[in-house]
Amino acid sequence: MSDKDHGVLYIGMDLGTSRTSISASNGVRETVESFVGYPKDVVARKMIGREALFGAEALSKRLSVNIFKPLEKGVIKSTEDGASIEENMKAARDLIQHAISLAKPRKDELIYAVIGAPAEASIHNKKSIIDAAREVIDSVMLCSEPFAVAYGLDMLDDTLVIDIGAGTVDLCRMHGTMPDADDQVTLTTAGDYVDEQLYELLKHRCEGADFNLNMVKRFKEKHAFVTTASEPVIATFPVEGKPTQFDVTDEVRTASRKMVPPIVDALGKLISSFDPEFQGRLRERVLLGGGGSQVRGLDRAIEEVMAERLGGGQVIKVEEPMYAGSNGALKIAHDMPEEYWEKLK
């Protein structure tokens, strides 16, 4: 790579079930929905003019492409509507390479990347992620997603990180040393779970309406909240082809709140098993990040349930939930010594 003499581009990536975000040292920050679409046939390929489409573009052409959502509950899926694991692996590989291309790297720069992957990912999964990335970059490392969030915010001591994604809620206890398995809890009551809950509630509330899980997901992303008071939330779904409005305020609140109790239970578990002298400090430093943390009022709702069950606590919402993971991974990449990068080439 001696011809890469221009500079060094660091990339931080948050590889998520629903969205993949990147932050790079050239100032580029991008996010793409974790969907990959391959043309269904020769005609579709000619019309699309590309081998694969990603994110919203893939979804918008879903009639011409086979859609893959290669990650589930934070890891590469083993099956998807009859798709083989190899197909999901390929989709994950293409998604990672597409995400790196979004950083607009120059050809003459060294590219070093840190990818935030779920702690639960299998060794095979992690190796696949590394292999996919290595095809297009010079050196790559993986790290746990919630750890990346904490590192990015310099909150490495006595902090509890909650990273709410679509597939999983990852909780990680930071106490000045590298968190191990006992310091991490992964829940599946995340964004996708809320979508399913809301979908079921809306089926009862909006009888006769025609909608699917994808529409519910998009609606939730725009309107999710957990506060007691709220403006009415109105959904418009077709009923026998006619757009019809439904007041779904209670359903959205109920579904969104279902995330809270499991999170507080997990917080309780991580706090109670910590050194009693520092439990109070840990309770007061709960960091809330990830795309799912954008649900309105979620930080306050967690605090309320913490007050009931754990005797209090303070939740700090990160400023840029969509990029907190990738920003942290970028910072890790920046700080990593040269010799480590070299050894992993």
């Binding site: 221009h6 500079g7 060094v8 581009l9 660091y10 790079a24 040292s25 050239n26 100032g27 580029v28 950083a103 607009k104 790297p105 120059r106 050809k107 720069e109 060294l110 070093y112 920046h334 700080d335 990593m336 010594p337 040269e338 990068w341």
Partner: peptide, 16 residues
């Protein structure tokens, strides 16, 4: 031609 966007770093960084 897509030139890409230059990184702000000309050399490998590391911890401050």
């Amino acid at each position: 031609i897509d030139p890409g966007v230059s990184s702000i770093y000309r050399s490998i960084q590391g911890l401050d």
